[in-house]
Design a binder for these strands. Structure first.
Length: 169
DNA sequence: GCCAACGTTGGC
DNA sequence: GCCAACGTTGGC
């Protein structure tokens, strides 16, 4: 795989189900349970997306992401993680006890994929959604677009850096 | 392929 | 708890 400049993402998680503190304890985790095709396709390798005729942006090993607490008080970007592996089969689709169980999937033909991510850091000061919304430079973030519910979103380097700045780095 | 009904997301 | 917006499902 060729070296390339990192790309940037935003990954949402409800802290009640998986918080940045849990992420920090785990160090690494599989980002499982994503059940939205657009979000899934970001985690599938770009070669595969190209083969499928869907050459959208794809995660690459080494990309960085903002860890976002959704349905939280307040909703906020709370830290940073790193993409360790892409295009991993999501094991929760085979687990009948999981909320993310997918009866139509089989091991031979999995439907859902995930990435492995590594904890990088907490922001010293979380950046709440209201502050993101108030920042002119962040107006184009997918997060702020009306009706945007994507749990995995591409973020520009400028946006990533600006959030870091707002966090007091 | 259309589209109504339904379930989910997520801010407030 | 409310509700707008969205994605998915399934009948036709």
């Amino acid at each position: 795989m060729s070296k390339s400049t990192p790309q940037f993402w935003l990954l949402k998680s409800e802290p009640e189900s998986y918080s940045i503190d849990a992420f920090a304890r785990d160090g690494k985790t599989l980002w499982t349970g994503v059940r939205n095709y657009q979000a899934r396709n970001f985690m599938v390798g770009e070669e595969i997306n190209t083969q499928l005729g869907k050459p959208g942006p794809s995660m690459r090993v080494g990309d960085l992401f903002l860890f976002y607490h959704s349905s939280a008080e307040p909703p906020a970007c709370v830290g940073v993680g790193c993409i360790e592996k892409v295009n991993q089969v999501d094991p929760t689709q085979f687990d009948k006890k999981s909320e993310a169980f997918e009866p139509k999937a089989s091991k031979a033909k999995p439907m859902w994929f995930c990435c492995e991510v590594a904890y990088v850091k907490h922001f010293v000061r979380p950046v709440p959604l209201a502050e993101i919304r108030a920042a002119a430079k962040l107006a184009k973030m997918v997060l702020l677009q009306k009706g945007s519910r994507l749990s995995i979103q591409p973020v520009t380097k400028q946006e990533f850096d600006e959030i870091g700045k707002l966090s007091g780095e």
